[in-house]
Write a protein that binds this DNA or RNA. Structure first.
Lengths: 203, 203
DNA sequence: GTCCACATGTAACTGGTTACATGATTGG
DNA sequence: CCAATCATGTAACCAGTTACATGTGGAC
């Protein structure tokens, strides 16, 4: 239940229409909570029905006609409640790690190229974050609000740094693996039950 | 579409019943791709229908009666295909960062305690990973398969390390924030539209 | 024989994704 | 007037979550 609260936050920062929100989600908030325009419109409808936001008056509600929303007191209260409420961190879910685990069983053929691609993508994202930091948080005094925004950006930077380092390390490992690039030394369709219990980190 | 492949991987490592899989997902594979028993049973049904796995013979299929599965050649082939196929990393989605962003607008009241709690949880997870590393990957020679497993574990360790460091840093920042613990200097229900465009990292 | 843990499953719901539909505005 | 683009929306689907249902076998 985070998307409505992401939208409330965005609307408090600046009242916007659905498409404007979509654009803003593509940039700042979307860095850690992405959403498509369909999701956003659906959620805007719900939030309006619940009395958490309202369409700015002075605009006729018609299809194809832009409609801006602002947050109502009830919406702000709900956001405060949610922000302060305890929430468990949800467990990591990463397909790339899963593929590595699969590769330990069926071979690493074809994986290396995609690891390189991921490395490039994470390097690009890291560069983008650093650019934002340079532009919006030059060394010096931050307002308290900015301290929080900077803290969030730092999380992004550190996470991308982690990924680039880990992927670089992974690629080094791959270089030294039997079969090397494109191989892995595994047959393509051995009988299924041929694998014994190789359980090293599985216990 | 990762859960079926997670299951195929687990079953190749060792043929298992639904409940065994659930247990194993709670430990190793679940560290980066968790699943409940309901998901697993549903997916086992689909995989069997598609001819990717089969129930081990010698067991009557009855409710309440354990039923073990093994991977068929078609399933192994599918897993190989999936492992080698390019996949985009899916964008980060983290509710805690979202809450921080919200806190920049509605105040940080109540957040600090949960940050502390998250820090404890991540510290515990980190310790658990380190324990596994000590036990399963003592310094020395790794088999090629183990090199991959160790690489995956390293990702977990480095990620938890990042979170513990970042959360510690965040808590230091909080200590110096106006209003301090429990405050934030924000009213609880100011009029909704009172917020101007404070857009520092929003552009 | 009853209770409890084991084991497999069903049903309903929620949130996110993909594909498509429709109206308004603007530049040529 | 036509095409392109802006803007809002609908529908169908898929994966994950929560709550519940049912059967088996062993301990007491």
């Amino acid at each position: 239940m985070s998307l409505p609260h992401a939208i409330l936050t965005a609307l408090l920062e600046r009242p916007s229409s659905g498409l404007e929100l979509t654009r803003r989600f593509d940039k700042s908030i979307g860095y850690f909570w992405s959403a498509t325009h369909q999701q956003i419109y659906r959620e805007l409808g719900k939030l309006e029905a619940e009395g958490h936001i309202r369409a700015l008056p002075s605009q006729q509600p018609a299809r194809g006609q832009r409609k801006s929303y602002e947050v109502l007191p009830a919406g702000r209260a709900e956001l405060e409640r949610w922000t302060a409420a305890a929430q468990d961190p949800k467990p990591l879910r990463d397909a790339l790690l899963l593929r590595l685990r699969a590769a330990a069983v069926v071979g690493t053929a074809g994986l290396e190229g995609d690891l390189r691609r991921h490395l490039r993508l994470h390097q690009r994202q890291l560069e983008e974050y650093r650019e934002i930091e340079r532009r919006d948080f030059p060394p010096g005094k931050d307002a308290p609000q900015d301290r929080l925004h900077h803290l969030i950006l730092r999380a992004g930077i550190d996470l991308e740094t982690f990924w680039t380092q880990w992927l670089s390390h992974a690629l080094e490992e791959f270089a030294g693996l039997p079969g090397g690039p494109g191989g892995g030394g595994e047959v393509t369709d051995g009988t299924a039950s041929s694998d014994g219990a190789r359980t090293t980190p599985s216990r």
